[in-house]
Design a protein around this nucleic acid. Structure first.
Lengths: 224, 224
DNA sequence: CGGCATCCGGGAAGATACTG
DNA sequence: CAGTATCTTCCCGGATGCCG
């Protein structure tokens, strides 16, 4: 079936046989925060065609990375989710993310998916910046809700209700990325309606400083 | 020039724009242990064609991951080497390697390159297994020499002369992989001439137990 | 809506041959 | 040795249409 296989016993080469095809890792990224349906995946991966998504899901399932599950009636839809081993790839995404953030060509302001922003916070969180702060934050993007917790400096964020959080941030995920990584002032985002903040605003303003980007690597020109 | 770009601000997507093309990561893997020439790369990447290698090297250079350097006369050859940032991707290879080693479909016995075997030792070394042992080992594969050091349980391996090591292992890298990961008895490898051991043989026999493979993840069949 | 099948155009990958 | 040139094959991306 799959013909273009590296015939190489190296584990890295094997990984590329499994997840090296175009879109495969991005499909996995979208599933890191929980199961999704076919159309959810399509919506959060602008540019992928149904055709290709079907094939990637088949290959990832054959590789035991993704599992397909039919929900019981009445919601008789099927969902795709990472297997336990697939979920273990999260570390891989964090390492890739930290490495790629140093790329001279990376523009942290380009549009990104909800899963990307949430994963970026898991990736870039700096315990040193957070000190021993505690508090809870809710994030609301479209129909997706996430709950972040700071517990004496320990950080987690996952899917969960925003209700009851010390501060609830709602709006567009790109706006949050702009505030986190692009230095866009919070006031400007609120003024334009891209983001609304309800609750402990001071907590959120401190929170925004906990995710420093690494320095860019120098761009190297061709050497004669 | 490059047309198929994920238009996605996520750092992972950017990484895939840089190194997501076929062969790109394997080219980087071959450079992790030091500079190589074009034909060295070709020889250690069975299956890559010259034009693809040329294009990957161009793209990696444009991404500031690889640098091309012309050696001064008389050895007026050009070599390719990782930039400092490119070298930082080593962590990525170790994480990928550990993750992929758990793949139900991974066969650790398949043929692999010299760089792969050496990197696999960096990846799989278990400090718990090594205790506080000290000693030095030399590895000789074809024209490539590596020096491994155990210093009170701290492990390093890099290019370097085998002379002066407590034990020198020479022969075929696949044979070493078989002894490390495939449970092939050392005696059998020596008998067949695939591996020769000179010096502190007991040290090498202990060394062979310091690189345990992780458990395989369960293979999941389709669920109805 | 949630997929899968099919076709089509373009472009990347693979094989081979060739040149400085 | 270090690549280019050329040709073929196959994958990707888009569109459409079918079926539950």
């Amino acid at each position: 079936m799959k013909k273009r296989v590296y015939e190489d016993g190296c584990a890295t080469a094997h990984a590329l046989d499994l997840v090296g095809e175009r879109w495969a890792l991005l499909v996995m990224r979208e599933l890191l925060l929980g199961p999704k349906r076919f159309s959810d995946l399509r919506a959060s991966l602008p540019g992928i065609s149904a055709n290709v998504l079907t094939q990637r899901l088949e290959n990832l399932e054959a590789a035991s990375i993704v599992r397909r599950r039919k929900l019981p009636p009445p919601a008789a839809a099927s969902i795709y989710e990472l297997t336990e081993w697939g979920q273990e790839s999260e570390e891989l995404f964090r390492v890739i993310g930290r490495w790629a953030a140093r790329s001279p060509q990376h523009d942290p302001q380009a549009p990104l998916s909800v899963a990307s922003v949430v994963m970026s916070m898991r990736t870039m969180f700096s315990p040193a910046r957070a000190g021993r702060l505690s508090g809870s934050l809710g994030f609301h993007f479209g129909r997706e809700e996430f709950r972040a917790t700071l517990d004496k400096g320990k950080f987690t964020i996952e899917r969960g209700e925003v209700d009851g959080a010390d501060v609830v941030v709602a709006g567009n995920q790109n706006a949050l990325a702009g505030a986190l990584y692009g230095g866009v002032p919070l006031k400007a985002l609120e003024k334009s309606g891209a983001l609304t903040v309800k609750g402990d605003r001071a907590l959120f303003e401190r929170y925004l400083t906990f995710f420093p980007l690494p320095d860019k690597a120098p761009h190297v020109d061709a050497v004669g």
